[in-house]
Amino acid sequence: MTDALFDLTGLPFWKMNGLGNDFVIVDLRRTSHRMTEEAAITLGARDGAYGCDQIITLESRAGEPYMGIWNADGSEAGACGNAARCIGWLLMKESGAQGVAFLTPAGEVEAQWIGNERISVDMGEPRLKWQDIPLAEQMDDTRFIDIKLGPIDNPVLWGPSAVNMGNPHCIFFVDDVSAHQLDKFGPMIEHHPLFPERANISIAQVRGQYDIRLRVWERGAGITRACGTAACAALVAANRRRLTARKASVELDGGTLAIEWRESDDHVIMAGPVELEHQGTLSR
């Protein structure tokens, strides 16, 4: 698989993370080469030279910065909140600006520097209609969708919420996230027939009106220490079910994000830290 990196050899990269959700960011702005499924798999492999949850490309499209998103299994994703904070940090470091805007597969993202290596990003409006998530079946209320785990007459988990934050999310609300084996049922629900594009699977424990504990199985990546879009989706789902306010701290395995579903325009704002682990040039 090392030959998969042939076209990318010598290109600059950064290894960064947001709350432990880690990325290899490849700078494609000055080359005609593009990321491939095979190269993404090679870069993402934990037993390889790089290893990460997602591979992020920094590109220039029509003169605008563009963030591409690849999962470690080689599939492409529409959004990644933690990576968006990392890209925002890089672009602001380059320009010296306090705010930047860049394109993603899910649309434009705006990032702001808020100090102490913390970045906020505007993730836009959540998509809540069944056809926009998307779901394979029409339903009027995506706050509760028809998925059950366990015996039909006594399910262990049931009635999750569905939200799209640039990619599909399925959120189960539970009393204790440590009591459920997300690594066992996460891949099964990720590929549930109700999700034609697969889904990120979360279990959320509401600990108070402004406090959520969250664990995430990320499609194409598995259990992850943090997932920004999942944190956004969990806050939206919890508020829609009248479990929390429109603003809360969301604690993931890797740390805590501040999420607000802004009432003025329905945009979801996410704030949290980023870390540059190292940088260099790609080699085979």
Rank of each mutant, 00 (worst) to 15 (best):
F173C: 05
V206P: 10
T244C: 10
R143C: 11
A221I: 06
Q205L: 05
D175S: 15
S178H: 14
A234L: 04
H192R: 00
A204R: 02
A179R: 13
K247Q: 15
N239E: 14
G159S: 15
I212T: 02
A237Q: 02
L149Q: 08
Q209F: 00
V216W: 05
G228Q: 03
D146G: 03
F173P: 06
D183C: 03
A238P: 04
V174A: 09
A162E: 09
E197P: 01
K148Q: 14
T142E: 10
S161H: 06
S161L: 11
L194D: 01
D211Q: 13
F172A: 00
I223H: 09
V216F: 01
Q181L: 13
D176Q: 10
A230S: 15
G186I: 05
D153M: 11
D176L: 00
P196Q: 08
E218P: 11
G208K: 05
P155F: 03
M188N: 04
D153A: 14
N154W: 03
V236H: 07
W158N: 12
E190A: 01
R143K: 15
G186D: 03
R213I: 07
G222Q: 04
G220H: 08
E190S: 12
L243W: 09
P160G: 06
R219L: 11
G222S: 10
G159W: 07
F172V: 06
R219C: 02
R215E: 10
G222E: 12
S161P: 09
R240V: 05
R225E: 01
L252T: 10
E197D: 11
A230E: 05
G166H: 06
F172P: 04
R215I: 06
A233D: 05
V163C: 02
D153S: 15
L182G: 04
N164H: 12
N239G: 15
V250M: 04
A245Q: 14
F172C: 07
K184F: 07
P151Q: 09
A162D: 10
R242Q: 15
P155A: 06
D176K: 08
V163K: 03
T244D: 08
T244Y: 07
L235T: 01
V177I: 15
P160D: 03
A204Q: 00
E190V: 05
E190N: 01
P151M: 01
C232M: 12
F172H: 06
S178E: 13
D175K: 14
R246V: 12
I223M: 15
A231W: 00
